[in-house]
Design a protein around this nucleic acid. Structure first.
Lengths: 221, 221
DNA sequence: CAAGATCGAGACTACTACTATCCATAAATG
DNA sequence: CATTTATGGATAGTAGTAGTCTCGATCTTG
């Protein structure tokens, strides 16, 4: 019997009771099993859901209304590609088109072509990529834009690993969970790893006597 | 004569006058050159700064107080490594330690060792990476954790390109601008490219008759 | 010199993510 | 079984972020 009541759910999740009630109200946490007019019991899935919500909020920094969409996708019987689509939508959010930049479009199209990616220009991921390229061009960061193909190669590698890792899951539910959490939680991981790599490679630029030889940032704030 | 007054600054930046005043109050935008008790003129650098602020806010999603730190670093005479440190600090924010996970620590240390990265455990990037690994483990996403080395290889590639691209800049100012904007604006680019790669590679998983063959997400929201 | 713009300050608003209070009921405890 | 504590549901309040509005004194421009 793993069932518990609110107090224990709060204790085991580390979240305050009002917060859990709030998540219930907002439809982030599924309601408990009712045992009376104003009584309910919760189970391990509730605990897992709470951990997932906290991970999406704190690690991935997603707003709660986005988390609601994502956890809903995990919950219902969507297919893998549907879930991936919903999760990607949620991750990039509503991308405003930004006054279009034909140069950026051409660059991106060329890179997608070169990589052989089948990517539809209507997908939010495409819009996000386009916007990012346009922004780099608007900021005159040509030296980065020039390496678009190299970034795409690295991105291809990461996306391939994501799908490969998740595709090996035992059942569909596990796969869907992997798609969502993989997309959402792997991102901060890669971000952090890139920062570490930057530190490493920046060491070579180190005309900086005030800084330690390891090139790491001093603590601040 | 490129000088302008508030109205033109607003028109050319696309930002409302009260918003620009707000940025001035908050120390995000440098004050204009005073020409009287209640008059000031602005110049092209002000316009550039506004574009930068908008890019950091909208594309990278940074909060204004973080943007203040970053633009300040670009402005003062910091060295390249200092600026990288400040920017990385700002990007990862204050990472709460999270109940430590020795297993995650060992895994991360092993990967850093294997890549030959010189990364100090005190750096915020290290803390962020550790937290991400710990979270993946806590969510039982072993299939992703198992590919930590592969992700690190891709991250190394990206970090190397970043530094290489920026290192080739003409002068120090340009280099510092590149470090900041490269770190901040390259991130959404890579994120989006990874999503496109995921779409591409997920096509192989496509046991999904309802979805188009190109595997792109349908518009939603 | 009158109309409109500008500066600076302070008040107000919208949104997000909680947190507090209340109450009727239900469970736990001496 | 009476009393203390907990629960669910509802409503209200709070803190932080990012602006937006209004105003009066001053300044520019036709």
């Amino acid at each position: 019997m793993t069932e518990m009541r609110m107090a224990e759910l709060s204790r085991r999740s580390g979240l305050a009771v009002p917060t859990i009630k709030y998540y219930l109200r907002e439809g982030l946490l599924q309601p408990g099993r009712r045992t009376g007019v104003n009584q309910a019991v919760y189970d391990v899935p509730h605990l897992e859901r709470l951990r997932l919500i906290r991970a999406l909020a704190k690690v991935a920094g997603l707003p709660l209304h986005t988390i609601r969409e994502v956890v809903r996708a995990v919950g219902d019987g969507s297919t893998v590609l549907d879930t991936l689509a919903i999760t990607q939508d949620a991750l990039v959010g509503a991308v405003e088109p930004e006054p279009s930049d034909p140069g950026a479009e051409a660059l991106l199209a060329r890179v997608i072509e070169a990589r052989g990616w089948r990517a539809h220009p209507a997908s939010p991921a495409y819009a996000a990529a386009l916007r990012a390229v346009a922004e780099l061009r608007a900021e005159d960061l040509t030296m980065l834009v020039d390496h678009l193909e190299d970034y795409a190669r690295a991105a291809d590698e990461v996306g391939r690993i994501d799908v490969e890792a998740v595709g090996g899951a035992d059942d569909l539910d596990e796969m869907i969970r992997g798609v969502v959490l993989g997309s959402v939680l792997r991102r901060p991981l890669l971000d952090a790893l890139v920062l570490l790599a930057q530190q490493h490679h920046a060491g070579a630029l180190g005309r900086d006597p005030g800084e330690g030889a390891d090139g790491h940032p001093r603590g601040r704030r």
